[in-house]
């Protein structure tokens, strides 16, 4: 195991402590209301009683965008190790990556043509 991971993990712990510590400090400093009104715990909706559920069905384009993100991330995941050896491997690695990216951009081109990534 790489020792740096332990340090990074410790850093995350410190960050958590920052967040939790602030909440802890607040629980001491906080002013408490003498009388609790049920109105205070209403969901905010511009002063009106909330109507219906806060749940709604979102458009499928959210899913397309998220999927495209995953696909481009997968692409990047392949590019990261490739990038570290590009200098040594030379032209063949370059050509492999160009082909890879070109094939992927075909999908992007199709998406733009079909306006699949248009938001409205």
């Amino acid at each position: 195991m790489q020792s740096a991971w332990l340090s990074a993990f410790a850093f995350l712990l410190v960050s958590t402590l920052v967040g939790a510590g602030l909440l802890g400090a607040a629980s001491v400093l906080r002013v408490r209301a003498k009388y609790d009104s049920p109105l205070k715990h209403n969901t905010y909706e511009c002063g009106e009683e909330p109507a219906g559920m806060s749940w709604m069905q979102f458009h499928a384009r959210y899913y397309v965008v998220a999927l495209f993100f995953v696909l481009f991330d997968v692409e990047a995941a392949f590019f990261f190790p490739w990038a570290t050896v590009l200098r040594e491997e030379g032209t063949s690695a370059f050509i492999a990556a160009v082909t890879f990216a070109a094939v992927l951009m075909l999908g992007w081109l199709y998406a733009v043509r079909k306006e699949a990534l248009e938001w409205q």
Binding site: C46, G47, E48, G52, S54, W55
Partner: peptide, 21 residues
């Protein structure tokens, strides 16, 4: 029920130019 969400936009909303709903 299934598709539409009713959102009260106002009266207490930052951009309704006063109390408008």
């Amino acid at each position: 029920e299934g598709d539409l969400m009713l959102l009260h936009f106002g009266p207490q909303h930052p951009s309704t130019h006063g109390v408008f709903r």
